[in-house]
Design a binder for these strands. Structure first.
Length: 853
DNA sequence: GCAAGGTC
C-alpha cells in the first residue's frame, strides 16, 4: 500500500481524485480521520490529510505556567546568563523537580524559581498537538510499503511534512519515503509531481523550525516580562510578538501623528443654485479652500447678495472604471471590513461557507482564475439564486466570458469564488452577507467596465469664479451587480454656456484640516501585507488578538493607553520587536538555513543572544515600566471624575458577580459607585462628560448591535428619572376581590425598569420590562394570559409586548423572530425575546442552520 | 493563561 500524506483534508481528497484510475476514490475513516482509498498502477493507494502542524514546540513542563504560582521571571533580579555563551541550552539540573531552578537559588514562597533571562536560553521540546491525527497516521504507516509526503510546497509545508515523517518512521523505520511537490490541483501537475518524486528537504524544514523557535522565545520572554512586571503575572496577559507588536506599532504611530497634528484653518465659499426649476445643485468658489481669511471674506462680500450665476463653460469627461480583480484572502478581508465584517469574523464565516460547499478554499494569494476553472459553469450554478439570475442570464448569453486578472498569480488554489448556489434562508445573516459579496465580486470580474459621466460647469457669480460638478453612472457595467463602495450620483441639470442660474443661498464656512485617518481593520490588513507582517492565514487573528488584550479599541483601530505604553516600553528597551525589520531579517536567516549556509542552531542562538542583550535594559528599568503600564491601565479604565471627592471614577469588576460597575479610585475613603449600562462604555471628554444636573460622569454607551446613546451614569439623576406609568390593572388582585394597579417604575439605585403592583406586599405581582426605549401604556391586556401589553418605542420603531415572561405569546414571538431575523429588520426586541424565552426558538434555528454540515 | 504558523 502507498500512503500519501497531505497538509489538509481538502488536498487529500483532490489528490485522490486526480490520481485514481477510476476517478472515484472511496472515502473512508481511520479512527475519526477521513482518508481516501483508490487503485493506481495495480497498487492500493491511501491519502490522508493532516490539520496543518501536528506538532507544537514548547518549553519543558517545569518552565511553563503554573496555575498556583503563575509565571515567574522578574523575581530573579539581575540573574543573567552571558549573552554570547549559550551554555544554558543544556537542560538544567532541576529537571527532576517540578519547580525550576535558579543558579543562585532565589527562593519565592519556598520554591526555587528561574530567572526570565534563563528562559531566553531554555531548551525547546516538540509536543504532539493533533493526537488523533497522529494516531491515524501511525496506524496507516504500519501497513504502508511506501510513504509520499505531499504537504504544501512551501517552508511551513516542508516542516509539517518533516514532523509527520518523524511520526511515521517511529512505527515504520524501514518504510520507503519520498516527497511530491505540486503547486496546483490539476491532473497534469499532480501526475508530474507523483512521477517525479524527490527527497524531503530537511534544510527547508529546519528553516521553518527556526522560525517557530525564534517566535516562541521572543514572544514568551517579552510576554512574560510585560505580564509579570507589575503584578507578578496576576491579571490580564500583556502580549508581544514578532508580528503583533509591529502591527500595534503601526496603529500607535498613526495615533501619534494625529496627536501631533496641528489643524489649519480654511474657509469654503459655497452655495446652492437652480436652473429653470431644476433640483438645487451645489456651487463652490473656484478656490476650493481659502487659507487666507481676508481673501475669503472679500470674495464672500462680492457674492453674498448675488442672485444669479452665469454659466461660462461646460466640460464633459467620461471616466471608465474597470471591473475589480478576483478575490484573494486579503482583498476579500478588506472588502468585508468595508461592509462591517471584521477580518477575523470574515475568515470564520468564509471557513463555514467553504465547509458548506458554497465558496472555494478561502486561504489564497492568487488573483487569477486558472484556465481549468469553468467560469460558464460557475455562472450557471449562480443563476439559480434569484438575486443573481438576471446578471447570470446576461452573461450566459455572451459568446465567451472574459475575466479580469489580478497582479498576484499563484497556482495552488483558485481565487475565492462561489462554488454553490446559496439560499439566504439557510444561512446566518452575516454568512449571507459575505456570500453575497463573494458571489457579486465573482460576477463583477466577468463583466464590462462602468462609465461615469463627469460634468464640470464653470460659473460667474458677481465677478467671482465658481464651479459645479456632477458625476453620473452612465453605463453601469459591472456596477449593476457590484454596488459596494459606489458613490451616489450627483446630477446636474442640463446647462449650456450663457445660461443664467438662480442663486438660492450662499455661505462662507470656516473649517479645519483633518489629521490623518486611523486605520480601518481592512486598511490595517493591507498595510500588514505591504510590510511583510504575518501571512494570509494569520493576519486577521493577530489583529483580533490586539483587540482581545485591549491594546486596540474601536473600528477604525485606536490604540488604548496601554497599547501606547507597551509600544513606548518596547521601543526603548527591545526595539527589534517593534518593527517589521525583525521579520525581514528572519526571512534572510531562514533562507540561509534552507540553503545550508547556516544551521538552525546557529540562527536561533544568534537570535537568543540579541534578545539576551535586551534583557539588561528591560530588567534595569522594570520599575519605570511597571509604573507606566499601571498608569496606562488606570487611564484606560477612567470614565470620569467622582462628583463627591474629585478623584478618578474607573470601571471596576465586581468580585462577587463578575459584572462591571463604576467605582471611585478613592475607595475605601470614598464609597461612590454606580451601576453601568450594558454595552461598551466610552468616556466623553471635556465638559460634556460631566452631568450638569448631578455632577456624575456622562458616558457614551455602545449596546451590542444597537445604536450608541449618551447618558448620565447616575441612576438617581433627574435626567434619568421617568414618571411612573400605570400600565393596567392587577389580575391577581382583581381575582382576590381588591383593586391593584400595575405601575412601571424605575429604580433609583440600579436604574432598572420594572412593573410592580400597588398591592405588591399582598399579591407579589411584578414583571420585568425592556430596559431601553420609551415606554407607553396601551390599556390593552394580552388575550393569551391577561397581563398588560406595553408599547416600547426604540430607534428602530415601536413594538408591543406582553409583559409576562411566561406568556405563550412570547414563545410564538421568539420562534417567529428567529425565522424572520434574516430580514431587513433584525429587531433587538425580538431577538431579546428569543433569548429570554429559552431554548425552544433558538435551538430550532441552530439545527436548521447546521443541517447541511 | 506565552508567538506565529498551519488548518477545522
Amino acid at each position: 500500500m502507498i500512503l500519501v500524506v497531505t497538509e489538509k483534508n481538502d488536498a487529500a481528497q483532490q489528490i485522490a481524485r486526480l490520481l485514481s484510475e477510476s476517478g472515484k476514490p472511496k472515502a473512508d475513516k481511520v479512527y475519526n480521520t477521513p482518508i481516501y482509498r483508490f487503485r493506481k498502477g495495480g497498487e492500493d493507494w491511501v491519502t490522508i490529510g493532516l490539520r496543518g502542524h501536528i506538532m507544537q514546540p514548547d518549553f519543558p513542563p517545569e518552565l511553563k505556567f503554573d496555575p498556583q504560582e503563575g509565571w515567574y521571571g522578574l523575581t530573579a533580579e539581575g540573574e543573567h546568563l552571558p549573552a554570547d555563551v549559550p551554555d544554558g541550552l543544556a537542560r538544567p539540573p532541576f529537571a527532576t523537580k517540578r519547580k525550576p531552578f535558579l543558579a543562585d537559588g532565589v527562593d519565592i514562597k519556598g520554591w526555587k524559581i528561574p530567572s526570565l533571562p534563563y528562559l531566553v536560553w531554555a531548551p525547546i521540546e516538540k509536543l504532539p498537538a493533533e493526537k488523533e491525527i497522529i494516531r491515524s497516521l501511525k496506524n496507516l504507516a504500519k501497513k504502508a510499503d511506501s510513504v509520499i509526503i505531499g504537504t504544501d510546497f512551501d517552508r511551513e509545508g516542508e516542516l509539517i511534512g518533516s514532523d509527520a515523517l518523524k511520526q511515521i518512521l517511529s512505527v515504520a523505520p524501514d518504510v520507503n519515503v519520498s516527497r511530491a511537490r505540486y503547486s496546483a490541483f490539476t491532473k497534469a501537475e499532480i501526475d508530474h509531481a507523483f512521477d517525479n518524486l524527490v527527497a524531503l528537504d530537511q534544510d527547508l524544514a529546519d528553516a521553518g523550525e527556526s522560525r517557530q523557535h525564534i517566535d516562541l522565545i521572543w514572544g514568551a520572554v517579552l510576554t512574560r516580562y510585560l505580564t509579570c512586571v507589575r503584578f507578578g503575572g496576576l491579571g490580564n496577559t500583556r502580549s508581544a510578538g514578532r508580528v503583533q507588536t509591529p502591527t500595534l506599532a503601526l496603529v500607535v504611530e498613526r495615533e501619534r501623528e494625529r496627536m501631533a497634528f496641528v489643524p489649519e484653518d480654511y474657509w469654503v465659499l459655497s452655495g446652492e443654485a437652480t436652473h429653470a426649476d431644476s433640483d438645487p445643485f451645489r456651487i463652490t468658489h473656484a478656490t476650493a479652500r481659502f487659507t487666507d481669511h481676508d481673501a475669503a471674506e472679500k470674495a464672500y462680500g462680492h457674492v453674498r447678495d448675488a442672485k444669479t450665476a452665469t454659466v461660462r463653460a461646460v466640460t464633459r469627461k467620461s471616466r471608465r472604471v474597470n471591473p475589480p480583480v478576483p478575490f484573494n484572502t486579503t482583498s476579500m478581508q478588506a472588502a468585508a471590513a468595508a461592509e462591517g465584517i471584521s477580518p477575523a469574523r470574515a475568515m470564520r464565516l468564509a471557513e463555514s461557507l467553504y465547509m458548506d460547499g458554497l465558496i472555494s478554499y478561502p486561504r489564497v494569494d492568487n488573483t487569477v482564475y486558472p484556465s481549468s476553472l469553468d467560469l460558464r459553469e460557475c455562472v450557471r450554478t449562480l443563476s439559480s439564486v434569484p438575486q443573481f439570475a438576471p446578471t447570470c442570464k446576461a452573461l450566459l448569453g455572451q459568446g465567451t466570458l472574459h475575466a479580469t486578472r489580478g497582479k498576484q498569480e499563484t497556482t495552488d488554489h483558485p481565487p475565492i469564488y462561489p462554488t454553490g448556489a446559496a439560499n439566504p434562508d439557510n444561512l446566518q445573516p452575516a454568512e449571507w452577507k459575505l456570500y453575497n459579496l463573494i458571489a457579486r465580486r465573482f460576477l463583477a470580474t466577468l463583466m464590462g467596465p462602468a462609465t461615469i459621466e463627469g460634468t464640470k460647469v464653470e460659473l460667474d457669480v458677481a465677478g467671482e469664479p465658481f464651479v459645479a460638478t456632477g458625476n453620473v453612472l452612465a453605463v453601469p457595467g459591472f456596477r449593476a451587480i457590484y454596488p459596494y463602495g459606489l458613490k451616489k450620483d450627483d446630477q446636474l441639470p442640463e446647462l449650456n454656456e450663457g445660461d443664467v442660474c438662480d442663486v438660492t443661498s450662499m455661505a462662507l464656512d470656516a473649517k479645519q484640516t483633518e489629521p490623518p485617518a486611523r486605520y480601518s481593520q481592512g486598511k490595517l490588513i493591507q498595510e500588514m501585507e505591504k510590510r511583510g507582517l504575518g501571512t494570509k492565514s494569520t493576519r486577521a487573528s493577530i489583529i483580533q488578538r490586539l483587540y482581545d488584550v485591549k491594546y486596540l479599541k474601536n473600528d477604525p483601530a485606536e490604540p488604548s493607553k496601554l497599547g501606547m505604553a507597551i509600544i513606548d516600553a518596547l521601543t526603548s528597551y527591545a526595539p527589534r520587536i517593534t518593527t517589521p525589520e525583525m521579520t525581514a531579517e528572519l526571512e534572510g536567516d531562514m533562507t540561509k538555513v534552507a540553503e545550508g549556509v547556516d544551521t538552525q542552531a546557529q540562527v536561533v542562538d544568534h537570535s537568543r543572544a540579541l534578545l539576551a542583550g535586551m534583557m539588561d535594559g528591560l530588567i534595569d528599568h522594570k520599575d519605570d515600566l511597571s509604573e507606566a503600564i499601571a498608569d496606562a491601565v488606570t487611564a484606560d479604565a477612567k470614565i470620569g471624575v467622582c462628583p463627591k471627592c474629585g478623584r478618578d471614577l474607573v470601571v471596576k469588576t465586581s468580585a462577587k458577580t463578575r459584572g462591571s460597575f463604576a467605582g471611585c479610585m478613592g475607595w475605601p475613603d470614598c464609597d461612590v459607585t454606580y451601576p453601568l449600562p450594558k454595552g461598551r462604555i466610552e468616556p466623553i471628554e471635556g465638559e460634556a462628560g460631566v452631568c450638569p444636573e448631578c455632577g456624575a460622569p456622562r458616558v457614551k454607551v455602545h449596546p451590542f448591535r444597537n445604536r450608541p446613546y449618551e447618558t448620565c451614569i447616575n441612576p438617581a439623576c433627574p435626567t434619568n428619572r421617568e414618571p411612573d406609568i400605570v400600565v393596567g390593572e392587577c389580575a391577581a388582585c382583581k381575582a382576590a376581590g381588591r383593586h391593584g394597579d400595575l405601575v412601571a417604575h424605575k429604580s433609583e439605585k440600579s436604574g432598572k425598569r420594572f412593573i410592580r403592583c400597588t398591592n405588591y406586599d399582598e399579591c407579589g405581582t411584578s414583571y420585568p420590562l425592556p430596559q431601553r426605549g420609551e415606554l407607553h401604556a396601551t390599556g390593552e391586556t394580552c388575550p393569551e394570559c391577561g397581563a398588560p401589553i406595553v408599547e416600547v418605542v426604540t430607534q428602530r420603531g415601536p413594538w408591543r409586548i406582553c409583559v409576562n415572561m411566561d406568556c405563550p405569546s412570547r414563545e410564538k414571538k421568539a420562534a417567529a423572530s428567529t425565522r424572520g431575523a434574516r430580514g431587513v429588520r433584525g429587531a433587538a426586541g425580538r431577538s431579546k425575546a428569543a433569548g429570554r424565552s429559552g431554548a425552544a426558538g433558538r435551538s430550532g434555528a441552530s439545527t436548521s442552520r447546521r443541517k447541511k454540515a
